[in-house]
């Protein structure tokens, strides 16, 4: 799991993540304590990754990358090339699938639109409204509070089916919610074996062959959260 800008997460989301990471007293912790605790957890994960632990089995030889030792000054720009802007003057939100449980989204609000919103409704705060639907039916939805200066977020999704959509919403002082823009839907990872646990025990041979594609000679499985979850269920079912 990779977390971007942990300091920018809301208290609510920090608590949610901490609970998922097995922190039992998350609800009683301050924001600072939550950040420190989560940083420790992720630092440990990172240490494992680079110390030859289980995660490392999947690292491949990077064959052509030699360290660049210049300072970049020799790669000159062509005439007329300017620095990239931080943001673009348009209102839009984009969502990308990072992995089976995390989405990454970035957005921008056109300055004119923000100004208009302030003029018409006074102060406002922003939130991300996440909705997961399947065959047109909403199966989950929730809000994530964000700061007005935030421009990107990592969103945890727990659904193993359907598609997710994220709306950028302004919540005005008068209580009105205005959807500023919405993302395109993102199809979530849906895994047959995770959705058909009842069939695991009757498919021992098949699962054994499928896992055989992913197991190295030391007996370690390819690193993938979804594969790990399937292996866990197989173990729980006492199949292999």
């Amino acid at each position: 799991m990779v977390l971007i800008k942990i300091e920018s997460l809301s208290q609510k989301e920090l608590e949610h993540i901490a609970v998922q990471e097995g922190v039992s007293d998350a609800a009683s912790m301050t924001r600072e304590e939550l950040i420190e605790t989560l940083k420790d957890i992720y630092e440990d994960e990172r240490d494992d990754e680079y110390s030859g632990g289980e995660d490392n089995i999947q690292r491949r030889f990077v064959t052509w990358l030699t360290d660049y030792r210049g300072d970049g000054s020799e790669i000159t720009s062509l005439p007329g090339v300017e620095e990239l802007p931080e943001l673009y003057a348009e209102t839009s939100i984009h969502v990308l699938m990072k992995n089976a449980t995390w989405l990454y989204c970035y957005w921008s609000i056109a300055p004119l639109e923000a100004e208009k919103l302030s003029q018409e409704h006074g102060s406002f705060s922003l939130l991300l409204h996440v909705s997961v639907s399947e065959n047109g039916q909403t199966i989950d939805s929730y809000d994530i509070s964000i700061g007005n200066d935030d421009v990107e977020w990592n969103i945890n999704v727990n659904s193993s089916r359907g598609e997710a959509r994220v709306d950028l919403v302004a919540e005005c002082a008068d209580g009105k919610r205005i959807t500023l823009c919405h993302s395109r839907p993102v199809t979530l990872v849906s895994c047959y074996w995770l959705n058909h646990r009842d069939e695991i025990s009757s498919n021992e041979g098949l699962l054994k062959r499928e896992l055989g594609l992913l197991t190295n000679r030391e007996g370690s499985l390819l690193v993938s959260e979804t594969v790990k979850n399937i292996a866990q269920i197989i173990r729980e079912e006492g199949v292999i």
């Binding site: 971007i4 699938m97 990072k98 992995n99 089976a100 970035y106 990872v189 895994c191």
Partner: peptide
């Protein structure tokens, strides 16, 4: 499903805290 041969099996290697800024541009 969407997938890759990168670490974790999805897009983590091309979409992490170091490189996610590039997609906006």
């Amino acid at each position: 499903n969407e997938c890759s041969w990168g670490r974790g099996g999805y897009s983590d290697s091309w979409l992490d805290s170091q490189n996610s800024w590039i997609y906006r541009h």
